[in-house]
Amino acid sequence: QVRQEAAVANAKALIEKVNEHCFERCVPKPSTSLSRSEEGCYSACMEKYMAAWNAVSKQYVSRMQREQSSAGFIGGGSL
């Protein structure tokens, strides 16, 4: 149950960020309806944001693992 709540919170945070970034970029001047091109941009932007999130997750986790398997914890990655 705790885990499910965490997953929901995580998905919500992701959706919020998608809306924040993609509305900023794809709808510079909001008019009386979303145009085709705004919709297309939004949908590509959402896909891209999720791909970016995936790339970050992988990189972050792999970095963590490299750091933990190396000798020190703080000194490991700075040079």
Binding site: H21, C22, R25, C26, C41, S43, A44, C45, M46, E47, K48, Y49, A51, A52, A55, V56
Partner: peptide, 14 residues
């Protein structure tokens, strides 16, 4: 990093 790295939104892939 999205702000730093992502230019124009032309496709959904990186």
């Amino acid at each position: 990093c999205f702000k730093k790295c992502i230019g124009k939104i032309s496709s959904g892939k990186l």
